[in-house]
């Protein structure tokens, strides 16, 4: 699947760029779904591919749409390559990897916004500057949403409005995004006029 083009939006909405190999003493790549393609293409651009592979740790989970490109990553021959069944099972291993990382480590995130955002949040927590983490969107555009009212997170939101999976309020989808929560903001759509809920439209696929 090709790279994603997002329409212009507000300044808090994350933006993405192509992954580029950068010099470093070690490399950590985290991907889900079609993000595997971005990792493969990034390695194709490496000036010294064997050296990069020898210092590369890949963490991968299938995408929310079921896309599983594990084989293409496993075939690369990286020093370490790990497949998690889901993003929540991938994150503890990422936490372990970053806890002992040194400055000079390069981070490459690719795939859906849910995966990218949560990996970025956990890497940031070490004090590593978030602006130095590379991020490339590939695959599904479903969103990870926080309900601003009950604070519950609803994963893989496809429609706008959507029903909060925790408190049941109907929420409209904002582009306002919190790196700290790794989520977009959902706000009750019928707070002023109770029961006036527009027909949900599929905006994210």
């Amino acid at each position: 699947m090709s790279k994603t083009e997002f329409p212009p939006s507000i300044r808090s909405r994350p933006v993405y760029a192509d992954l580029e190999p950068r010099p470093g003493r070690s490399h950590v790549a985290v991907a889900d779904g079609e993000g595997a393609e971005a990792i493969v293409e990034m390695l194709d651009k490496a000036a010294d591919r064997p050296a990069m592979l020898a210092a590369l740790h890949i963490l991968y989970a299938p995408g929310p749409n079921g896309t599983d490109q594990w084989d293409s990553l496993q075939a690369l021959g990286a020093a370490q390559c790990f497949r998690a069944p889901t993003i929540p099972t991938l994150l503890p291993r990422l936490g372990r990897v970053v806890a002992d990382a040194h400055m000079g480590t390069q981070f490459y995130l690719a795939g859906t916004e849910g995966l990218i955002g949560q990996a970025e949040r956990d890497i940031m927590a070490t004090g590593f500057p978030h602006a130095a983490i590379q991020k490339e969107h590939r695959g599904s555009t479903v969103r990870r949403m926080q309900c601003v009212h009950c604070k519950g997170i609803t994963e893989n939101v496809a429609t706008d409005p959507f029903k909060c999976s925790h408190c049941g309020l109907w929420l409209f989808v904002r582009d306002h995004y919190s790196r700290r929560l790794a989520a977009f903001q959902g706000v009750n759509i019928d707070a002023e006029d109770k029961g006036e809920i527009p027909e949900p439209v599929v905006r994210f696929t």
């Binding site: 470093g24 400055m103 480590t105 500057p129 602006a131 130095a132």
Partner: peptide
């Protein structure tokens, strides 16, 4: 920079 240190640090 050549050792991979990020600019904001």
């Amino acid at each position: 920079r050549a050792a991979g240190w990020p600019e904001p640090a």
